[in-house]
Amino acid sequence: MFKKDSITASPKQKLKSSIQRSLRTSLLTTFPLLTPYIDEVLPKKSSLEQMKLPDRVSLYVIEGQPIFYNQDNGVPVPHLKLVHRFPQAFPTIRIDRGAIRFVLSGATLMAPGLTSAGGRLPIPTVREGEPVAEGVANEGVDAEGHWSRELEKGEPVVVMAEGKEEACAVGLLVAGTKEVKEKGKGPVIEEAHFLGDGLWRLNVD
């Protein structure tokens, strides 16, 4: 989506407080794990601003920091700089070392980069039928890098990389993680936001 080195953006525009509130809610509904940090992510004293990008994408910025974007007012996807600040707040999968350079050149993320030895897909640790605690705050990543819940098609997911500390991409799943494991082939994320892409390089100050 942001493959071009430089993308054009409309000037920042302050949002009505009712819209700011609903965006805050949508962010927390999508990422409940962000709840403890929300006042740091969206400081109450500052207002959220919108920048319109190509392809009907909106980027939301606060205090000069990019927070998240969405397309057609759809699911919020965190900007990688937000992911780097609060990595614990977003579900992850991991690609093997060999796949990194493809993802960083804007290629569609394919299943084999995740199913190989260096890749990581979720291993559910809450057994089916077991009640899930309220607030769904009991998910997370294990020591080996497996997320504790299968992720659904359409969910935003952060892409970690073998041997690296920081996330390298983020995007919407075009296949659920269970299906990715079963099939072992096909696209997993199309149109990701990745390190060094036009969104990464966009000046939001």
Binding site: Y37, D39, E40, V41, K81, H84, R85, F86, P87, I100, R101, L104, K164, E165, E166, C168, L195, G196, W200, R201
Partner: peptide, 25 residues
């Protein structure tokens, strides 16, 4: 002041990526 818990990641002053990814630029 409220306690800040967000991490501060260092980005490369040349290519802007986290330095562990400089090899791909």
């Amino acid at each position: 002041e409220p306690v800040h818990v967000g991490r501060h990641v260092i980005y490369c002053g040349v290519c802007t990526l986290p330095p562990e990814y400089c090899e791909y630029g």
